[in-house]
């Protein structure tokens, strides 16, 4: 048992627990907060895996912006919890069954591929340095320039769409 593994297991437990918490909270606000915790945990994983930039993006975009947006909407709509519904009574047991089967399948796949036991690289100094970040930036703006630009357009479109949807219909069509 190395310290890495211990850290991993602890973090894993936190991530799973927060995910379950998100899943089974009655109140949507709690769910959102559990999810934030989960995202932060995952961000730590990213750091452990030597991806500091992604970790930072995770914290700022996901745990920050996105979840704030969620909370904002939840509170705006007052949709913390819903009245119980009798629709689709068999949905839950089926879903659990399927989820269980899926887990079993995943486990089976992982166990059956025993040859791929390569360990992840431990976060060494080089990775943590600015060199790795520069290297990634070089890659992003050279090899992946076009997708990057497309992403920017996507974000623009999403922004426009969100504004159009959320806007009060005052103007209408002449």
């Amino acid at each position: 048992m190395t310290s890495d593994l211990i850290v991993f297991l602890v973090l894993s437990l936190i991530a799973i627990a927060s995910a379950l918490g998100m899943l089974f909270s009655k109140n949507a606000v709690y769910s959102a907060l559990f999810l934030v915790l989960n995202f932060i945990t995952v961000a730590v994983f990213y750091l452990l895996l030597g991806a500091p930039f992604i970790a930072m993006a995770q914290i700022t975009v996901y745990a920050g912006a996105v979840m704030v947006l969620f909370l904002f909407v939840i509170m705006l709509l007052g949709a913390e919890s819903l009245a119980p519904s009798q629709a689709l009574p068999w949905q839950k047991p089926l879903a659990f069954t399927l989820a269980l089967v899926l887990v079993v399948e995943a486990v089976y796949i992982i166990l059956s591929r025993a040859q791929l036991t390569a360990a992840v690289a431990s976060p060494d100094a080089s990775l943590n340095s600015m060199d790795s970040l520069r290297e990634m930036a070089m890659m992003l703006f050279n090899n992946y320039l076009l997708p990057f630009e497309v992403t920017s357009i996507l974000l623009l479109v999403a922004m426009v769409g969100a504004i159009v949807l959320a806007k009060q219909e005052k103007v209408g069509l002449k």
């Binding site: 593994l5 991993f8 899943l23 879903a95 989820a99 791929l116 360990a119 992840v120």
Partner: peptide
């Protein structure tokens, strides 16, 4: 050192939990 399998297992587990959330 943590084998990559562990990460994958965690990833799968989180994925299934997410899917479960979508379903229920």
């Amino acid at each position: 050192m943590v084998p990559v399998d562990y990460y994958i297992a965690l990833s799968a587990l989180l994925f299934v939990l997410g899917a479960l959330g979508v379903l229920i």
